[in-house]
Simulated scan of single mutants.
Amino acid sequence: MQLNKDVCDIAVTTKGEIFVTGDKNIKKYLQDESCIKIADTNLYNTRGLCHTSIQDEFLVCLHNGYDNESKVVRMTTAGQIKQTIKKTNINNPWCVAENINEDVVVMDSYSTIVVVNKKGEYRYKYPGSSHSSHMIGGCYGIACDNTGCILVCDYYNNRIHQIDMDCRFIQFILTQQHGVQIPMGLSIDNKGQLWLCNNDGKEVTIYKYRSSRLE
């Protein structure tokens, strides 16, 4: 499938539907590879996107560069906004994921992971201290596994953080010793495989993933 240019993020539903963000809209790709616009976001640029546990809903990051206003919205696949999580709790969101407890996990432009509950109420952030040895040197991808662990791409430090659903550090599950070099994004599929965009997006490496170990 050939996607239009300027795609920022992509999400695939359990029905196999493909949604993409880009520019100031959200589009859905059809089986004949044509696309339809399901939502205009007006002054907001669209960024990260993820499908949720609810069949016909997804989360999307929006940012307005004119007044530096940003938010995460919960939207139906028909383009109807059902919830808005505003800048009060999340500053300048870039990537978003939903955890198994329905927490919303967001990576902001300051390379901080912010977690809010389903209602949009602040829970935790990671790293929790500016003096933490687990600081993130540029983050370009997050994912949640089926046990509630959160995986975070650490771009400049060439490693993948594994933290629990309360944002407590567990381990660096992948490092340069595993061949990680400038990781750009990651995803975990339903077969228990971790897909890592590596080497500044020039290659994809696949690992067998079982929450506590990689092969």
Rank of each mutant, 00 (worst) to 15 (best):
I163Q: 12
N190W: 07
S187T: 07
G185M: 08
Q181R: 10
D164M: 04
I188R: 10
F172T: 02
Q171W: 00
L194T: 06
P183Y: 03
V180C: 02
H178R: 06
G192P: 12
S187E: 03
G185L: 04
Q171E: 06
D164T: 05
L174Q: 02
V180D: 00
F172P: 05
F169G: 08
D166K: 10
R168T: 08
R168V: 09
L174F: 10
G192M: 10
Q181V: 04
R168C: 13
I182S: 15
R168E: 12
L194N: 13
I163C: 13
F169K: 08
Q177Y: 06
H178M: 05
G192R: 09
K191T: 01
K191P: 01
L186Y: 06
L186W: 07
V180R: 01
H178L: 04
P183I: 00
F172D: 13
L194V: 13
S187I: 02
I182M: 14
D166S: 13
F169H: 15
I173Q: 00
G185A: 15
Q181Y: 13
I173G: 01
I170N: 14
Q176V: 04
I182K: 14
I182W: 14
V180P: 07
T175L: 10
F169R: 13
H178V: 01
L194K: 15
R168F: 11
M184K: 13
Q177W: 04
H178C: 04
G185S: 15
P183E: 00
L194F: 15
M184A: 11
H178A: 01
L186M: 13
I170S: 14
R168S: 14
M184L: 13
P183V: 00
H178Q: 13
H178G: 02
L194C: 12
I170F: 09
L186P: 03
T175W: 09
